Simulated scan of single mutants.
Amino acid sequence: MSPREVQLRFPGPDRDLAGTLTVPVGDGPFPAAVLVSGSGPLDRNSNAPRMPIDSTRQLAHALAPAGIASLRYDKRGVGESRSLRDGTTEGRNGWKRVGLLDNAADTAAAFAALATRPEADPGRLFIVGHSEGALLVAHAAAGLLTGPSGPRPAGVVLLSGAAQRGDAVLRRQAAVIAPTLPAPVRALLRLLRVDLISKVSRNHDKIRATTTDVTRIGGPTVNAKWFREYLDHDPRADLSRLDLPVLAVTGSKDLQVDPADLAAIAEAVPGPVETWCAPDVSHLLRTQPGAASLRAYKQEVRRPVEPAVLGRVTKWVTARAARERDEPGVVEERHRG
């Protein structure tokens, strides 16, 4: 038998958000996890119009056979989460008006909604985030741990999660991506004497000077509110409040997040930590043959998420859920794997 999928809506800070609850075969309540997508206009499955990453859907379907329920949702302004409470529907670019902290508030709302579902065991709830989702998970979980009484996460999973300020992450991306560009593009940049890192830093200054949610930087409109919050967001402040079990996984060929940040996550988190640098895995959680390159992304998304990554997450969540069932509330000595 296949797991059951329930389409639902739950209250968010400014609208009801739409999602899918995947329920394992058998009798619940089950351990359960909120699955949070990365940056941009991603739906509940982590798919954008021209980039079907599909990571949250595949993760949900990996967790279910292990007896773990999950809730994944369309981000605010995307898919079925474009409808406002007054009945109107935003245009396709409504997501550009949403800030980083708005997205984190939606993650907390999804966790609260999952905790009320009869299919989910409120004492064994997890939050799993990829890329920006890892930042949202850390921020939401830190707030849930220190906020008013209510369900607390039993653990969090950070996939391709950064441990540096946003502006530092983007400058590093410019530095490591430049050598992977096609040779004619690199030659043109040299001819025009374009320093990508300096250009990125200048764009940061332009965005910080804006006051609107959306603005134009060099032509196209950008989600300025999100960038202003992201540039100065230091995830280590949230990581330092995570007194709970954490699994952090980053691929060795991740060009968007430094794999060395795994050590920084382990250093910052006060709870027990397990880290894994997945060999030859890219930011999209797929194995990437040859030299790391963004140009491989369009081919990568045609393949499944690396089974070893899905297996590592499933095994960790299953083990944590079993331990929480047998010894609720017990936090063991920290572990760095």
Rank of each mutant, 00 (worst) to 15 (best):
L284W: 14
P270Y: 15
V185K: 08
F227E: 00
V128A: 05
S282W: 01
A154C: 14
V185T: 10
D86N: 08
S160G: 09
V309N: 06
L125D: 07
S160K: 02
A237Y: 13
T211L: 07
A183E: 15
E229S: 01
I68E: 05
D326Y: 09
A168R: 08
P328W: 14
N203S: 10
A319F: 06
G143V: 12
E274S: 10
L262S: 07
G67M: 10
L135Q: 13
I207V: 15
D195R: 04
D258E: 15
E300W: 05
V137E: 05
S37Y: 02
D234W: 08
P148V: 07
P3F: 08
Q164N: 15
I265W: 07
P11E: 14
G40S: 04
D102G: 03
P49E: 08
V200N: 07
V330G: 03
A321H: 14
R124I: 02
L145R: 06
W95G: 01
G218W: 10
T287S: 14
R193S: 12
T212R: 14
R208H: 02
V128M: 08
E300Q: 14
L8E: 07
I127K: 01
G251P: 02
L42H: 12
D254K: 04
E324C: 03
E5A: 15
L63V: 12
L84G: 09
L84M: 15
A260V: 08
T20E: 09
D205R: 03
E119Q: 15
R124T: 01
L59M: 04
L294H: 12
F126N: 07
H130S: 02
A105K: 05
K253Q: 12
V98S: 03
K96M: 12
K315I: 13
L63F: 14
R15A: 13
K315L: 15
S131G: 10
R50E: 09
S55L: 03
A66P: 03
T210F: 00
A321P: 08
S39P: 00
R4Y: 13
I207N: 02
V305L: 07
V25E: 14
A292L: 00
V249E: 06
S252K: 04
P245V: 12
G26P: 01
A248D: 13
D243W: 10
A154M: 11
A322E: 15
T212S: 14
A163K: 04
A260W: 10
P41V: 07
H204N: 04
L310Y: 07
E229H: 00
S149L: 15
H283I: 15
S81K: 08
A62T: 10
A32Q: 09
L294C: 13
L284P: 05
